[in-house]
Each structure stands twice: as C-alpha cells, then as structure tokens.
C-alpha cells in the first residue's frame, strides 16, 4: 500500500528537514505561556478571553505537530474539535461580557471583585 502513498506524498513540500518536533513544541509552549501571562495580567475582560484563544491556538499547534510526528490524522481531527470548543466559548463568553458591561458600564474585571466570595 505504500507506493500509492509515496505517490500521494511526493507533492508535499520537502522542507520538513532541519526542524524537529521540539521546535514546534517550543513555539507552542511559548505561545501558551504568552496567553497565560496575558490572562493573568490584563484587566480588560475581552482581552482576557482573547488570551484564552491564544492558548487554544498553542494547543492546536502542538496537536498538529504531534500528529505529523506520529504520522496519523488524530491531531488534525482534534484541532477541529478545538475550533468547535473555541467557537462555543467565544459565543458564551462574549454574551456574558456584554451582559456584565450593561450592568457596570465597564470592562474592568476588577469591577466584579466582590464576586470572589
């Protein structure tokens, strides 16, 4: 069965060489950490959710890189599910943000710190 696959993959770009899985994982980890720092430091509710999207993005890069490394498509399939969850999360989070903004006329997360109980 591999001949057909060789035929199928001869069209792929060659420049995989020189880049290891570790490179992609490093980029993914750095992007995740940037998202984490943003989530912890920014006080604007919308930017906090934008930072969670940054973390989703990093997870997606790691998944696709691992899928490429293990030569299967589960990684790419799970990126589809990440997209689903990100879309659902964006819809819910933004509806909540609009609701919170109407209450206090401010996007400041600290305006709600009396919620910490």
């Amino acid at each position: 069965m591999s001949d057909l696959l060789t035929l199928a993959q001869s069209g792929y770009p060659a420049p995989i060489a020189g880049v290891t899985l570790a490179h992609y994982l490093f980029v993914s980890a750095a992007m995740f950490v940037l998202g984490l720092i943003g989530f912890l430091t920014r006080r604007n509710l919308i930017i906090m959710f934008l930072c969670t999207e940054l973390m989703f993005q990093a997870a997606g890069i790691a998944l696709v890189a691992f899928g490429r490394y293990h030569l299967n498509f589960h990684g790419q399939t799970f990126v589809i599910f990440i997209l689903t969850v990100a879309a659902a999360e964006a819809a819910m989070a933004l509806a909540l943000v609009v609701l919170l903004f109407r209450r206090k006329e401010s996007l400041n997360a600290e305006a709600w710190q009396d919620l910490k109980g």
Binding site: M1, A8, P13, I16, A22, R68, L71
Partner: peptide, 11 residues
C-alpha cells in the same frame, strides 16, 4: 526528540 518523519513515509 527525533526529526519529523520525511514526506516519503506513510501518512
């Protein structure tokens, strides 16, 4: 960690 498998491999 090793290199990513080249394009000649079964995907």
């Amino acid at each position: 960690i090793g290199n990513l498998p080249g394009p000649g491999n079964a995907l």
